[in-house]
Design a protein around this nucleic acid. Structure first.
Lengths: 362, 362
DNA sequence: ACGGTCGCGTAAACCGGTTTGCTAAACCGC
DNA sequence: GCGGTTTAGCAAACCGGTTTACGCGACCGT
């Protein structure tokens, strides 16, 4: 009696029931292979011993984990408080649960994403926001696990889930132009790896680059230029948005409208506007991106670009499982989702008092 | 060449390097046991073969997974969009990463939490919001995995992380009483398992019961009664808060102040108030619970009860790892955190127009 | 020259399941 | 009564690592 109540193993059950290990295994996994009386007997003994098959041993033998991983280059503590990520993960969870798959999060371990990937016991990986220029990208792709990329095309041969960032951004800018706005500030999302000093649009595949292209395309179609110093970036959080708008204001920017690349940052900008004594939308229009649940609950409710956050998550699961089953490595075309503008209360006609002088030319 | 580029195993590396499997294992795990030249040679061969030890096999042999699980009775899709949970998980992630532990989420699989627990490959479980009356509680506790309970004492022998719910709730109610409020509506969190019809305070250990006790204690200390029909419950979401306040209003409740048991629901109540034409705080005061990051960003900023969400997560990790290392099953005293009221802009003196008649009596 | 210690590596057991032949008995039709 | 097919269950290999126990030659002191 020296060993403290060790958990019962399959061998214990087999011995107690007077059968072989194989029989016990069959009793649970392929009961048809056994006489139904025997199955019943084995099961009874098993529950009597409170036997529960060790999931790790099962994983090893079956060479599958029934788990999918969500990979992000950012640390989990920032990820979990990012509502965009929450809604995306919510979609992943829905589809994963339906497929009987567990969920694991993969994020840099002691600074190394590759190390985390090597440790991960998953059948497939959904990588979100993985920059094309991530330093460990080569190491990561070498792992033989099926990948799906979300919001990026960093691994050209893997399936990707994308949205029409440029189109959505263009719609947002067009909307503001139609309301008479001419002076914009853009609040972008800083690249995860790079410091504040680095150019956030260095990688043309990065979301900030894509959306900025959309804003500028629409603006220049309206004869307006969005200069580089009207673009500020920060982390994709409410605080990041507040700080960014304050910084732009302090640098002398006096926009009539703000184009924020995430709703979280737009909410932060809402606060900054309040702090600057500007009413939204009377003095300043703000439009976000993502159409989070919370965009409906701000005051005023947020005008924003809708993208199907949960649906992207569900589709990712579908793709990664599909990839895991039929292992043909032939590249697939990216899966695109449409975006569209949702007009709520945070945008309005440009205030007459702040109309541009050159607005009357032509 | 029939087998498609199978991943290299330890045996492959051993053969290629002309050593035994044990040597390869040592080269990575206990290099001191080998001649350093040999280590270097083995490592070179290994990287040449792009060898990466199979984490599952390693888990089996070492009998530990280097993973901790976060267990919730709710489905993950609702959990991931719950900001309270996000902040808590954020704390868990911080401490887990520091300890080199991965994170896995455990939630009901095809309706069964016990099944999910059995499948989970974790060294310890942090269970949050597990009701004392959960139908599978007996099955769950039988698993030999170390547990830590958060916001509940459903398993009396396991360590628990708690906050002073009653005290915080009392502080909120007292604050409102001091502002002259006499008519309240309480917005509570419905029990996860039970339907809408069930009594949300049936379990005295459930968070709604604890906080309600606090509200009522403070109220009755001020000579005020909070009747049962002034208590409405719903899911702990913004939408749940909106719906709940509308329902109370439709039932004839005309409060001057709302006590919401979560900030998410308070934000929803903020919206409901707007829809009812009530200004906050001029016409209606609202106080939340949790002090989420976002409570600073609402308009008006939310008066709420602070609890250390992230810190609770970090402490949980510490406890569960501690429990896993020294396996003495002796019960520990619960770890309590204090709560305190944070007064911001959503509460004010009761509007004179809506003052109670009996407010003048003595 | 000899027993003892040290340094380096190996063989084999082990972790706890699944799965692949294979055998022995029962059943079948004729 | 006999070949052929099922049925029921077993033994052993296997999944891919870790770890224990031991072998062996070199070195050491005497």
């Amino acid at each position: 009696m020296e060993q403290a109540t060790r958990r019962a193993t399959i061998a214990d059950v087999a011995k107690a029931a007077g059968v072989s290990k194989a029989a016990v295994s069959f009793a649970f996994n392929t009961p048809d292979r056994l006489n139904s009386d025997t199955v019943a007997r084995i099961r009874k003994v098993a529950t009597g011993l409170d036997y529960r098959p060790d999931p790790v041993a099962r994983m090893l033998a079956q060479r599958r984990t029934l788990t999918i991983g969500i990979l992000t280059p950012q640390a989990l503590d920032v990820i979990f408080t990012n509502p965009y990520f929450g809604e995306f993960s919510s979609g992943v969870a829905t589809a994963a649960e339906a497929a009987g798959m567990a969920l694991q999060f993969i994020s840099p371990l002691h600074g190394s994403l590759a190390r985390a990937v090597d440790r991960a016991t998953v059948d497939g990986i959904i990588a979100v926001g993985l920059g094309r220029d991530h330093p460990e990208i080569a190491h990561i792709r070498r792992s033989s696990i099926p990948f799906v990329l979300v919001d990026s095309t960093a691994l050209p041969n893997e399936p990707a889930v994308l949205v029409d960032d440029e189109g959505g951004a263009a719609a947002a800018a067009t909307h503001l132009l139609e309301l008479g706005h001419r002076r914009f500030v853009v609040i972008g999302i800083e690249a995860p790896s790079a410091g504040l000093s680095a150019d956030p649009t260095a990688d043309p595949d990065w979301v900030t680059s894509r959306r900025l292209r959309g804003y500028r395309a629409a603006a220049s179609a309206g004869g307006i230029d969005i200069p580089d110093d009207a673009v500020v970036v920060g982390p994709a959080s409410m605080d990041g948005g507040t700080t960014a708008l304050h910084r732009a204001w302090a640098a002398g920017q006096r926009p009539t409208a703000v184009l924020a690349m995430s709703d979280a940052m737009a909410i932060g900008a809402l606060r900054a506007a309040r702090e600057l004594g500007l009413r939204v939308p009377e003095d300043l229009s703000i439009v976000g991106f993502d159409d989070l649940d919370i965009a409906n609950y701000t005051d005023p409710p947020l005008t924003t670009v809708h993208q199907p956050n949960r649906q992207k998550g569900e589709e990712s699961v579908r793709l990664v499982l599909d990839r895991a089953h039929r292992r043909d490595t032939e590249p697939e075309a990216p899966h695109y989702f449409a975006t569209h503008l949702v007009v709520r209360g945070s945008t309005a006609f440009v205030p007459p008092s702040r109309q541009e002088v050159f607005d009357d030319r032509t």
